[in-house]
């Protein structure tokens, strides 16, 4: 079911974001016992898609899940193991030469916004600093006004 909803939420033939599918994916992440550990890898695979629209949709799904899927999902995303998958999209040593500027821009913007929103996640900060040191991130992106404030706190586990 996780893959089914993710395929729907990242369908490259649809230009608009399918928010109902994203919501269903998030709910599935929260109800499936393996959801929080499995979902980040499904998302990483989509984010590395050669199809720009699929990758962009997947980034929106990831961002929504980080804000709404609870601590366990957040904890997985904040590990180097997952952050490396985002770094691969940016680094010319990995997939960076094939990634479009739009996708790279969104990944950088998202990583930077996490460093602002979640300063306690040291690994996110380290990954972002490494990208800057490598010259992959030239300067901090300007976050749109609606993204400067942190997202709503994750729902308590019991809900």
């Amino acid at each position: 079911a996780l893959e089914l909803w993710l395929n729907k939420a990242t369908d490259p033939s649809v230009s608009e974001q399918d928010w109902a599918a994203i919501q269903n994916f998030c709910e599935q992440v929260n109800t499936d016992p393996n959801g929080p550990t499995h979902a980040p890898w499904l998302l990483a695979h989509k984010i590395q898609s050669p199809q720009e629209r699929e990758a962009l949709h997947a980034l929106t799904v990831l961002e929504t899940c980080v804000n709404h899927c609870g601590e366990k999902f957040h904890g997985e995303v904040a590990k180097f193991r997952f952050l490396n998958e985002l770094i691969k999209v940016l680094s010319p040593k990995y997939l960076g030469s094939w990634t479009t500027d739009k996708v790279k821009g969104r990944v950088i913007e998202m990583l930077f916004s996490w460093t602002v929103w979640f300063p306690e996640d040291i690994k996110i900060r380290d990954a972002y600093q490494m990208l800057k040191k490598q010259g992959i991130v030239k300067q901090d992106p300007k976050l749109p006004a609606d993204r400067i404030l942190p997202p709503p706190s994750p729902r308590p586990r019991s809900s």
């Binding site: 691969k88 680094s91 990995y94 380290d126 990954a127 490494m130």
Partner: peptide, 15 residues
């Protein structure tokens, strides 16, 4: 212990 060893195995990608 499991968590500790997982922590040790979690590295940034070599660049």
């Amino acid at each position: 212990l499991g968590e500790e060893s997982e922590e040790r195995d979690d590295h940034l990608l070599p660049m």
